[in-house]
Design a binder for these strands. Structure first.
Lengths: 256, 256
DNA sequence: TTGCGGCATTTCAACATTCGAAATAGGCTT
DNA sequence: AAGCCTATTTCGAATGTTGAAATGCCGCAA
C-alpha cells in the first residue's frame, strides 16, 4: 500500500494480527489462519515459528496452533500495578453480600472499559462475564460512570464518533448521550438497561483517587428481570453509593 | 548475526522484546528503553508507535510509555478456555476454608507453572503471589505434582537441563529430582520447602482429566513457620487429598 | 500398493521494509 | 542564551521479508 505511514513496522503489526486472531479460536491450522488473515503461507509460517520460539504460541505435533498463557502473564504484571484492585476486594465482597448480584471493578482502556476484578452472584440466573472482558464505554453503566467524571479534555478523545447500535436500547446519538452523562453527574450513579447486550442491565458508581480524578468504577450487573425500580431504589443504588464512597475514602487514605 | 535461523522474523521478535521489557516496569522513556534493549532510537520509536497504534502501549504527552491491558485481554480469552477453572472454584473455596491458607490452581506452561486462580489466606502473615505468576516447575510443589504424573515422553522435553539454584534448598541435580518425583508418585502429593523463595513452602496434589491425564495442580502455599509436620499431617495434606480427589471426580463428570 | 489432494515446510531471488546516522525539533537547566 | 538530553523525522543503504514454486508429508480412495 502507498498510504501506510512509514513510521509503523508492518511485520510487527502482522504478528499482532496473528496473536489477536488466535485469541478468538481454540486452535487452528496454518492455512486456515492464513486464509483468514490474508497472508501467504510462508509468511504466516515464519510468524508462528517466531511466536512459538518466544513462547506465545504452542505448536502441536500435528501442526495445530494455539495461544499459550504468555500474553496473559505479561498482562498480569500490568494489572498488578492497579493498586485499587487490592484495596477494592473487601469492599466488593461487602457489596456482593449486600446485593446478591455480580460485582465488577472496571477501568477505562482506550474507548472501552475492561473488567479487572469480579465477584460472581450466587444466584443461579446470572450474567456471563469474565475478568479481562471489554465493553464499549458508551453503552455500559461502568463506562458512563467513568466518562461522566472525566475532564472534558480527555473526554473528547474517547467519545465515540459513531454510536454503533448493539441492541434496541443502545443510545445512538451524541445529544442523548450528553444528556445521559449529565444525569449521571447529577445522581452520582449510572445505569445500563440492555444497551449493550439483551437481558443484561447494570448500575455503577465512579471511584476516585486521592487527587479527585476518576480512577475506576464499581458496578453490579443484573439480569433484566431482577433490575426493577424497587430493587434499584431499595437495594442496589444505596449499596453501590455507600460502598463506592467508602472505597473512594479508603483508596485516598491508602496512598496519602 | 549470521547464525540466526532464517525462518524467524526479527522485527516481530524485537516487538515482543519491547512488550516484555515494558511489562517489567511501570513506565519508561524511549532512550532508556532503547539502551536497555540495545536497539537504536528510531527503531524503537517505530516499534512503540506500532504497539501504540494497536493499543498495546500507551504514550503519554511527555512521551513516556507504559503497557495497556490489551495483552491481558487477549490472555483472558485464552485462560477462559481452561474449563477446569470454573469447576475448581468451589473446591478451592472449600480447601481455603478447611486450611486457612492461600490456595492456588496452576497449570503447566512450557517449563514452568502458571497460577491461573487463587484464594488468599485470611491470615495476616501470608505469601505474596498473584494470578498470572510463573514459577519454575522443578522447584515448586505445584510443578512437581504435575511433572510426577506426566507421561515420560512429555517429561523429557520439560525437565530442566540445568537445575538453577534459587535458594539453599533448591534441588540441584537430576538424580535427586528423579527421587523426588518418585516420592510424589508414591505418596500422591508434592511439597516445596523454600526451594524457590526463602520463607515460602507449599504442598500440592495433581488434578486429572477424564482421560486420566494430569491437567493441573491444586496447592496450598504457606509461610515456613506454619509449614510444620503436624500441620501437614493433620490438616494440609488430608484436606488437599480429599479436595483434589473430589475435584478430579467432578471434573471427569463435567465433561463426560 | 499407488496416486491424488491437501497441508506444512523449505528454498531462493526480487524487492519492499527496516535500518541507523545525521539532522531537526523540543524541553529543561544553568 | 548556551548547553544538554531526549524525542522525532529524514533518507539512502542494506537487510530482512516476501511469495512462487519446489519439496516433503500424511491420509484417503481406488
Amino acid at each position: 500500500m502507498s498510504t501506510r505511514p512509514a513510521y509503523l513496522t508492518a511485520t510487527l503489526a502482522k504478528g499482532l494480527d496473528v496473536l489477536e486472531a488466535l485469541s478468538e479460536v481454540e486452535e487452528t491450522g496454518l492455512s486456515e489462519l492464513a486464509r483468514r488473515l490474508g497472508v501467504s503461507g510462508p509468511t504466516l509460517f515464519r510468524i508462528l515459528a517466531t511466536l512459538a520460539a518466544r513462547g506465545y504460541v504452542q505448536k502441536s505435533a500435528a501442526s495445530r496452533y494455539r495461544l499459550t498463557l504468555k500474553a496473559w502473564e505479561i498482562g498480569a504484571k500490568t494489572v498488578r500495578r492497579i493498586r485499587l484492585r487490592d484495596v477494592a476486594r473487601p469492599f466488593m465482597e461487602r457489596l456482593a453480600a449486600a446485593t446478591g448480584e455480580t460485582v465488577h471493578l472496571s477501568v477505562m482502556q482506550g474507548d472501552g472499559i475492561v473488567i479487572v476484578d469480579k465477584i460472581d452472584s450466587p444466584h443461579p440466573v446470572r450474567v456471563d462475564t469474565f475478568v479481562g472482558q471489554r465493553a464499549p464505554a458508551y453503552c455500559s453503566a461502568t463506562g458512563k460512570a467513568i466518562l461522566a467524571f472525566l475532564p472534558s479534555a480527555s473526554l473528547a478523545d474517547i467519545l465515540p464518533r459513531s454510536y454503533a447500535r448493539h441492541t434496541a436500547a443502545t443510545i445512538a446519538d451524541r445529544a442523548a448521550f450528553e444528556r445521559e452523562l449529565a444525569d449521571v453527574r447529577r445522581t452520582g450513579w449510572a445505569k445500563n438497561r440492555e444497551e449493550w447486550r439483551d437481558g443484561v442491565c447494570a448500575a455503577a458508581v465512579p471511584l476516585f483517587d486521592s487527587s479527585g480524578a476518576v480512577a475506576a468504577s464499581l458496578s453490579v450487573t443484573v439480569p433484566t428481570p431482577r433490575f426493577t425500580q424497587s430493587a434499584l431504589r431499595e437495594k442496589l443504588v444505596p449499596a453501590l453509593k455507600k460502598t463506592g464512597a467508602a472505597l473512594t475514602d479508603e483508596f485516598a487514605r491508602a496512598r496519602g
